[in-house]
Design a protein around this nucleic acid. Sequence first.
DNA 1: CGTACATTTGATCCACTTCAAACTCGGTGG
DNA 2: CCACCGAGTTTGAAGTGGATCAAATGTACG
Lengths: 259, 259
Amino acid sequence: MNSRIQKKGSCLNLSKEPRCMTCSLSSLCLPLSLNLEDIDQLDSIIKRRQPLKKGEHLFRQGDSFDSVYAVRSGSLKNYIMTNDGEEQITNFHLPSELIGLDAIDCASYPVSAKALETTTVCEIPFFRLQELSNELPDLRRQIFSCMSKELRDDKQMMLLLSKKNAEERVATLLTNLSARFRRRGYSQYTFRLPMSRNEIGNYLGLAVETVSRVFTRFQSKQIIAVNGKEIHITNRQELLEVADLNDYDIETGKKLVAS
Amino acid sequence: MNSRIQKKGSCLNLSKEPRCMTCSLSSLCLPLSLNLEDIDQLDSIIKRRQPLKKGEHLFRQGDSFDSVYAVRSGSLKNYIMTNDGEEQITNFHLPSELIGLDAIDCASYPVSAKALETTTVCEIPFFRLQELSNELPDLRRQIFSCMSKELRDDKQMMLLLSKKNAEERVATLLTNLSARFRRRGYSQYTFRLPMSRNEIGNYLGLAVETVSRVFTRFQSKQIIAVNGKEIHITNRQELLEVADLNDYDIETGKKLVAS
DNA sequence: CGTACATTTGATCCACTTCAAACTCGGTGG
DNA sequence: CCACCGAGTTTGAAGTGGATCAAATGTACG
């Protein structure tokens, strides 16, 4: 049995001196198409951090910007503040995902990042990443690529917030999380939500109560099984259909959403 | 009277061989902190295009990606399609603004871009921009900067769609357009909306009728004066307040939006 | 094992949507 | 020159999805 057999997702490199090359996330983090030599260089600039406890901030809106982060384990939320102190969650981050790219031309972070659970991250000092990216076109391309993907995700989020009803929103989130867990090597059918119902509602532009009711409705329709934060997707096909374009009520055939 | 006196906004360089250095938008477009030598190089890769007529596409979702564009005059909308053929407008673009950065790591454009009126653009072939940005760290930084700004704007849009009511949404859009016109050298108080009420509603996640009603309400409150697409901002202060956090009804003191 | 907090469930309310119809305005052809 | 057309816009009236309010239930944790 060789090291290739290790279960994905459970093989985080937790040694004292972790290195990008041996990190189990390397194929995901920064999805790097760098050659090994380049990875060595990237490795040399990455700083490890003490794990964050649930509720701790990685950084706050307004903090001076100096690093991008890659999530190694756990999860975080990004949020911005309205003038009257409400928060609006703009993203959730799971392992292998990058945080802080939207600050790249700023003196300070435009959003806050807070741990949803115990979380470890790799810190990538930006000024050094930038120096290094001057020499490595592939690395540069990867950074562009990450930002560009985030832009596209944002547009999808606008569509969701602007056009989708409550069921479609929740179904879209579950579908999305499922795909991300899968990509990390976890089950796409059974997973644990790292965020509270409140945070789901905040993110999706819904009241907590509505999120809860949709979960209940999905359960009675046998689409998912819910136990607290544990989710099991029972009928993936149906969930996908609800997420994408459930314009007509299945029972009545009546139109639910305007054109 | 010297050339400095020209009215800003009406001094677009329309000669046969326009150059970035002499373009009146140069201080805005790509907000370039490049030195003159660099500008010459940028200039050499920019292609000019036939003006687009109202309703024509600059590119469509799915078209192969090869250029970013800077708007020289006129305006465009970006939109994505839902599975059932509805459109969701994700952005409006006024002169000096860049289009297409969200495609940077894609083979094809993830959104469509359509002219709202007669529109001229500068085409910047991306492969050449990328080549050139390899040599010019400042240019590279500007591209990052533009993408990063768009990311931040997107988060604000999510907040709008998720938390703001109809009046706040419309006020936010007007405030935003006002600032952008101002930045281009036009009046921040009097301007012409390049988009229809329908497009405003689509963008803001509201029904056309709601947009129209808010306009009427703002007029009766003396916040703006509307004549078709012509907008005059009568009470800027009030408009800003409505845009930012009008949580309580001015008349009744009753809470309008949940916390 | 009890207190605080998260989630669920029920009942009511309301901002916005939907449906319907009138109106405005630029263009166009008789 | 004006009647007419169609698209865009406004206005009115009614309906509804989700928010809000209220309260019960479930759950984590010191």
